[in-house]
Amino acid sequence: MLSSNFKLAETINQMSIQVKFFASLREKLGQSDMELTAATTAQDAWNQATQNKPVPDNLLVAINLDYAKLDTPLQDGDEVAFFPPVTGG
């Protein structure tokens, strides 16, 4: 009974953070998206998703489709995206 309660608590506390990579970063890391079950900040999400790879110069970060910073806190359900400088137009 005790162990099943612990499992329930773990399930409730689990977060869902969607991580996305684009363009040259997507190719370099070999992945376009993944899901994390916990992350405190965008930096924390980067560390987990890339196994602590160094942050590239000029890295851009967006949380829920708006530009953000690496130290921006994350909440359950957030989508955090990492990408290189944009080159449209």
Binding site: F22, A23, S24, Y67, F83, V86, T87, G88, G89
Partner: peptide, 14 residues
């Protein structure tokens, strides 16, 4: 508009 788009809109060219 074109300057803002070029520096901030998330497009990438290969």
């Amino acid at each position: 508009l074109i300057e803002e788009l070029k520096y901030k809109a998330p497009f990438w060219k290969k």
